[in-house]
Simulated scan of single mutants.
Amino acid sequence: MGKIGYARVSTTDQDLSLQLAALSAAGCGVIRSEKITGSTVAGRAELRTVLDFIGKGDTLVVTRIDRLARSLGDLQDIVRELKAKGASLVATEQPIDTSTAAGKAFLDMLGVFAEFETNLRRERQMEGIAKAKAAGVYKGGRTRIAADEVRRLAGEGMGPSAIARQLGIGRASVYRLLSPGKVVSQDDRRPLDVPL
């Protein structure tokens, strides 16, 4: 029966020292840490190692649950995996101890609020993008060119300039799609509105 600590920060310029000190003070014999975003469990090798290694009677110790998971779904998956192995979860800075009924209830409430905060942040971001688009400031990502549509319009006899205007893309893109692998110099191009 042992305590295994897990510490995480989101970016490489953030410092793990406070978390590591708190986990040592909590009596963790083993502490794993990583610098990686925590929105999902995927890609977090150190956390995966802890979850694979932890066994019956062990306790996973974190400073706060947001160091462990940012979504309620991921948090519940981790807690279920710990429970299936006979292990528990404790947070040093929050009244969380999944070996007690009160600790489990508090964990569920914190998980709901953490996910709510993430969703609010996403909504604010989308509102900001919509406002920027309305003001003409935000143009979005690169336009994806529908190659099939370019070829279809060319097949109907439409010229490169007309295709480019209709699809809102550059004429050079039309030429590239209609002549894959061939570099077309300015001198080699057909007159602008002559169908291909």
Rank of each mutant, 00 (worst) to 15 (best):
S39Q: 11
A172P: 02
L110F: 10
A154D: 06
L18Q: 08
A135V: 04
L68Q: 07
E34N: 05
Y175P: 05
F116A: 14
D58G: 05
D52G: 09
R122I: 12
D58C: 03
L75E: 01
A25K: 10
V112L: 13
A135N: 12
R142Q: 14
L47Q: 09
V150T: 11
R44Y: 07
A45V: 13
L192G: 10
G181H: 06
S10F: 04
S88P: 07
E46L: 01
I65G: 08
A42L: 11
R176S: 05
G57Q: 04
L89F: 00
D108N: 14
D13M: 06
L120F: 11
D74V: 02
L192A: 15
Q125L: 12
V90S: 05
R80P: 04
A69E: 00
E81K: 10
L120G: 08
L75Y: 07
R165G: 06
R70V: 02
D187T: 14
G128F: 00
R44I: 03
L153T: 05
A147C: 05
Y175S: 15
A172R: 12
D193T: 15
V183I: 10
R176D: 11
S33M: 10
E127C: 03
G27L: 08
V90K: 13
I36H: 11
L107Q: 08
K104G: 13
A134Q: 06
L167A: 07
Q94S: 03
T11L: 04
R8E: 01
L192E: 09
L16V: 12
R48W: 01
G2D: 13
A105D: 01
G159E: 03
A147R: 13
K3A: 06
A42F: 07
T100P: 01
L72N: 14
V79T: 13
A146V: 13
I78N: 09
A134D: 11
D97L: 09
I169T: 10
F106I: 15
E117V: 08
T143C: 12
L18F: 01
L178Y: 00
G38Y: 03
L110D: 02
I36G: 02
T12G: 07
D148R: 06
Y138C: 08
E34A: 07
A114I: 09
R48L: 10
I54G: 10
E127I: 05
E34C: 10
I31D: 12
K133I: 14
E156P: 02
A130N: 07
G140K: 01
E81T: 11
R80H: 12
E115V: 00
V62L: 03
L110G: 01
S99I: 07
